[in-house]
Design a protein around this nucleic acid. Structure first.
Length: 255
DNA sequence: CGCCATTTTCCTGGTT
DNA sequence: AAACCAGGAAAATGGC
């Protein structure tokens, strides 16, 4: 397998991940998308493969990692522009990165080029890496505080790193690759959707939160709390929910 | 450490 | 009867 070939080359220090690992480490869990066994079974974590050999999934994992690690606003990133293989990613120019992710694209481009030239040892020291990124930002006349969605609002589509349940649900609805028929739009324009596989949804959410005791009963309780805050609106049908006025990022024409 | 929002856990009771 | 729904209550969690 690819893994066995590239692992030693690009993971010179197996412990380098530790200071960097946070929520992203669960993506290294091969059970993360149980419905994608055919894919995950032979798909290792992005750090064990050279960027040029990344699958779409690796690219996705890398993006999530970058968002998490460097506090990039995921709303800046146009997911559809990054639904590509590692080879395609590596062939993107800096301009194309900016096109796809606004100001965040510059960071992503910079990080990717460093991985390509230095391998993953680039991440050996988390603080050093952050400092390097910061230096890069400063020399590029960019301000960390400037990496906000208003700088690249036109590219927002799916939040790649959603810490909230409703965002997780939204992103699943917007990502057919990961959805696997777990969720389904009932009325796309009105934001009405149905939970098709309640157990699978709970399991997926549980994996995201590293909680193997998650059930749909408990997940649905959390969803019901959203009625109060206007994130969701009640729909008088079993397993059917509707995005409320305080939910954003789900509308097709507002990307 | 405290505050706060969110989520988890548990529960009682009702509905499909 | 199994699977959901409605919320109250309280604990856990994580960010600031």
């Amino acid at each position: 397998m690819l893994d066995s070939v590239t692992h030693s080359t690009f993971l010179p220090n197996a412990s380098f991940c530790d200071p960097l690992m946070s929520w992203t480490d669960l993506f290294s869990n091969e059970e993360y998308y149980p419905a994608f066994e055919h894919q995950t079974a032979c798909d290792s974590y992005w750090t064990s493969v050279h960027p040029e050999y990344w699958t779409k999934r690796h690219v996705w994992e890398w993006l999530q990692f970058c968002c998490d690690q460097y506090k990039l606003d995921a709303n800046c990133i146009s997911f559809c522009h990054f639904n590509i293989s590692g080879l395609q990613l590596c062939s993107m120019t800096q301009e194309e990165f900016i096109e796809a992710a606004g100001i965040c694209g510059e960071y992503l481009y910079f990080i990717l080029q460093n991985i390509r030239t230095q391998g993953y040892s680039f991440f050996n020291d988390a603080e050093e890496t952050k400092a390097t990124i910061k230096d890069y930002a400063d020399t590029s006349c960019l301000k960390t505080s400037g990496i906000k969605s208003q700088d690249c609002h036109s590219h927002s589509r799916t939040s790649l790193q959603s810490s909230h349940l409703w965002e997780f649900v939204r992103d699943l609805l917007l990502s057919p690759d990961e959805n696997c028929g777990i969720l389904e739009w009932e009325d796309r324009e009105q934001g009405i959707f149905r939970v098709v596989k309640s157990e699978a949804l709970a399991k997926m959410w549980g994996q995201r939160k590293k909680n193997d005791r998650m059930t749909y009963e408990k997940l649905s309780r959390a969803l019901r709390y959203y009625y109060k805050t206007g994130i969701l609106e009640r729909v008088d049908r079993r397993l059917v929910y509707k995005f409320g006025k305080n939910a954003h990022g789900w509308q097709e024409d507002k990307l």
